[in-house]
Design a protein around this nucleic acid. Structure first.
Lengths: 251, 251
DNA sequence: TATACAAGAATTGCAAACAATAAATCGGTG
DNA sequence: CACCGATTTATTGTTTGCAATTCTTGTATA
């Protein structure tokens, strides 16, 4: 009577077998679902529904949602529940700016501090990433691409930057899933490999240059110029210019 | 019977009258107490005790502690409760590195985007800060000094950076409270004023130079070289050299 | 005397019940 | 027929109680 449908294993395909607390497991499941776009931006995340799905109480769900909100992939409106975040173009720009800043610093630090073991692990991740795209699993590919940057941050050995990077990568993945233009060739694993080479050679200038180019590359793949179809109805129909102003002149 | 001892007003002396949800109120109270060093690093934060103090349930306390843990001012150990964080020297270095990075970017952005109203508000904050130090309220001074940098980040108009800055400023305040050397003349409100002048003049180079100097100044006021008294008993008494090695040679 | 073990106490983790708030539907009215 | 308001419903916010884990302290033994 106490047994769950399934004792809630973590879904990550990356070999993370760490069987964390329920909290972490639910968090990871929702997180992955969002980043793999199985949960579209704007989707409402009902506490009760999620609790039933995962076989846990709302307390757990609530905490997981709180963590996700902290990372910016979930929007938590008071008394109105949680929805999958849908970054606006302006927010996307801000995130990219911050991320470029952080990636530059991380690259410089990684050149100084990355161990050979960490570099080997990064290479393995690039391989996994390529496999995903070859297999056609675009969602997992995007997620692994993000995890690559997160691991690189860990190699930089600066805890606050890692934490910030985690948030930025999550949101970036969301943006990519939301704004990426048609061609799916954003798969940048070769750029990742070049980057590892430069870091392994301890060539700071080259590594930074590659990273910046990589960022520009990702950015250029998105169509952030005009608002693509968003959930904002007002924005969608604003060009019609037939907004019904409330007839009451003063109140 | 439902009435509280005091309906939990926010403690901030900065005029933030926004009466948020209970969650926010408790969060702000603990936050300020830590930053003003009324709660020393290492202090255990019992959920039940705090709940009784604030007149709310453990649930609220728990959430507040979770937020504080996210910002790094509280350490949340599973099944072991929460304690006020006590950053190590290495952690302090990492935080300062990240913060210098972020402050530089924020300064550049603030030069571009800060409105006159925001600059006026910043000047007011510096005045308040000076008043605090004149009044001898060191704790509040440290906190206001941090809030100045947070407001400056808001003037930069980049939400992710603001969020990160909030975390960094909190931890920096904790570090200052923990590691500041004797002389209390760290009060850097004049440097803050100079900084505002440069930003108001839209002189990016000068503003950045002043900010970097300001960071170095704060850094130099700390004695991060040797571990000062921490909660680690082993470290405190290590010089005595009478550590009892466990007699068992192998096990 | 020091170590190992065990029982007790205290504290956190979790879940279900209760209360409050916002959305939605239905009915009334100009 | 459109618009405004009250009731109903659904969902979130909060409290309380129970279960599980950990820390402490006391006791026995080598």
């Amino acid at each position: 009577m106490n047994e769950q449908l399934q004792p809630l294993k973590k879904p990550t395909k990356t070999g993370k077998t760490r069987t964390g607390t329920q909290d972490d497991i639910v968090y990871a499941h929702i997180f992955d679902a969002i980043l793999e776009q199985r949960l579209a931006p704007g989707t409402k995340l009902s506490e009760e529904a999620l609790g039933e799905i995962f076989g846990v109480s709302r307390t757990i769900i609530r905490r997981a949602l709180s963590r996700l909100a902290h990372e910016g992939v979930v929007l938590l409106r008071p008394n109105r529940g949680a929805v999958v975040a849908s970054p606006s173009v302006e927010e996307a720009r801000q995130i990219f700016f911050a991320r470029s800043l952080v990636e530059k610093a991380i690259t410089e630090l990684a050149v100084q501090h990355a161990s050979d073991a960490q570099l080997a692990e990064l290479r393995q991740m690039v391989t996994d990433e390529r496999d995903c795209f070859d297999r056609g699993d675009r969602g997992a590919g995007i997620r692994l691409s993000g995890e690559f940057h997160l691991r690189l941050a860990e190699a930089a050995k600066n805890a606050p930057l890692v934490s910030f990077q985690r948030s930025l990568v999550s949101q970036t993945s969301l943006i990519i899933a939301q704004y990426e233009s048609g061609n799916r060739s954003h798969c940048s694993y070769d750029e990742h490999n070049e980057l590892i080479d430069a870091i392994a050679a301890r060539d700071s200038d080259k590594a930074v240059r590659l990273m910046m180019h990589h960022m520009d590359h990702i950015d250029s793949k998105l169509n952030l110029e005009e608002d693509s179809a968003s959930g904002d109805l007002h924005a969608v129909f604003s060009h019609l210019g037939l907004a019904k102003k409330k007839p009451r002149t003063a109140r």
